Simulated assay, not measured.
Amino acid sequence: MRFLIIIPAHNEENNLSFTLDSLQQQSHKAFKVVVVNDGSTDNTAEVIRKYTQQDFRFETINLQKSEHQPGSKVVHAFKNGLQAQSLNDFDVICKFDADIILSENYLQTIENAFVNNPTYGLVGGLLYVEKDGSWVYEGNSNKHHVRGPMKAYRKECFIQIGGLRETLGWDNIDAILLEHLGWKEVVLPKLHVKLIKVKGADYTIRPADYYGRYFYFLGLNRFLAYIASSKEAMKSKSISFFFDIISAYENCRSKKLELKITKEEQKIVNNQRWTMLKKKWLKM
């Protein structure tokens, strides 16, 4: 299978070479890498040039710096990389981050999963971070969800879900839509991916604002958004956190901020969330 790997990068001079080295060392050689330099002000461009000059499989696109918003910024850069390629030339579409290290068999293992399982639409491994000199499971998400830094989509699935949405929550919207269409999202637990830096470290948005905006742009109705907010408040053991999240959510509603999903897709998202709620909380 032929892989198209798109890597958005902004000021990643200290991390990007680790990612690109791990790709060059892959046992599976049929891939193309497009690094989208999103307005970097450090030496990211020089790092990229080292690879594009010596390996024809590596290309780059240079953008003016896009607005630094969680979710929308990275997908905006990804789309610019995607638009410069012909999907007919590839079988797997990957969105990778510029600060991950892949094992040598990563792409080959992904290919094997797709070839042997025709219903697999999205496949990835598990993220590990360095702690006290050892690499440990990140643990920020359940082990059945492919995290944003290492998405690999079967091309047919990617096209059917309409690609990635330029919005906060894109890496959950994709999973919900593909499941609705009959595809499977699969995490391969033995496939470890090293994450060099902690996600969200560059974001200045307050946690409550983040969750409020996230629930809004995910398309949750008011009832489900309030339930989700209460869950986050219970995690933090803070009643005020609940009201802060709700305030951010309602602020988005009052402004009628544009959603990147259709009315029908909103119904799909809310139905999926309601099903999860009944299963986990109401035991129905």
Results as ranks from 00 to 15, higher is better:
173 I>L: 15
173 I>K: 15
173 I>D: 15
174 D>E: 13
174 D>N: 10
174 D>A: 08
175 A>L: 06
175 A>S: 15
175 A>F: 02
175 A>Y: 06
177 L>I: 07
177 L>H: 10
177 L>V: 09
177 L>K: 12
177 L>P: 08
177 L>W: 10
178 L>R: 07
178 L>F: 07
178 L>Q: 05
178 L>C: 09
178 L>V: 02
178 L>P: 01
179 E>W: 03
179 E>A: 08
179 E>F: 02
180 H>V: 01
180 H>G: 01
180 H>W: 03
180 H>C: 03
180 H>F: 04
180 H>Q: 05
181 L>D: 04
181 L>A: 13
181 L>F: 15
182 G>S: 14
182 G>A: 15
182 G>C: 14
182 G>K: 12
183 W>R: 02
183 W>C: 03
183 W>E: 01
183 W>F: 14
184 K>D: 00
184 K>G: 00
184 K>S: 00
184 K>V: 03
184 K>I: 00
184 K>F: 01
185 E>M: 00
185 E>D: 07
185 E>S: 00
186 V>Y: 01
186 V>D: 03
186 V>W: 02
186 V>R: 02
187 V>I: 14
187 V>Y: 06
187 V>H: 07
187 V>F: 07
187 V>D: 06
188 L>S: 00
188 L>N: 00
188 L>H: 00
188 L>A: 01
188 L>D: 00
188 L>C: 01
189 P>G: 05
189 P>F: 02
189 P>L: 01
189 P>H: 01
189 P>Q: 06
189 P>R: 03
190 K>D: 04
190 K>H: 08
190 K>L: 04
190 K>Q: 06
190 K>F: 05
190 K>P: 01
191 L>D: 04
191 L>H: 06
191 L>A: 07
191 L>R: 01
192 H>L: 05
192 H>Y: 06
192 H>R: 11
192 H>V: 05
192 H>K: 15
192 H>G: 02
192 H>P: 04
192 H>E: 11
193 V>Y: 11
193 V>C: 13
193 V>S: 06
193 V>P: 08
193 V>M: 09
194 K>A: 02
194 K>T: 07
194 K>I: 01
194 K>Q: 11
195 L>T: 09
195 L>I: 10
195 L>K: 11
195 L>N: 09
196 I>G: 03
197 K>Q: 09
197 K>I: 07
197 K>G: 05
197 K>C: 04
197 K>N: 14
197 K>P: 02
197 K>F: 07
197 K>W: 03
197 K>H: 13
198 V>G: 08
198 V>I: 12
199 K>E: 10
199 K>D: 11
199 K>Q: 10
199 K>Y: 14
200 G>H: 13
200 G>E: 12
200 G>W: 11
200 G>P: 13
200 G>K: 09
201 A>W: 13
201 A>T: 12
202 D>F: 12
202 D>C: 09
203 Y>S: 09
203 Y>R: 05
203 Y>E: 10
204 T>V: 10
204 T>Q: 14
204 T>F: 09
204 T>D: 12
204 T>C: 06
205 I>L: 12
205 I>D: 04
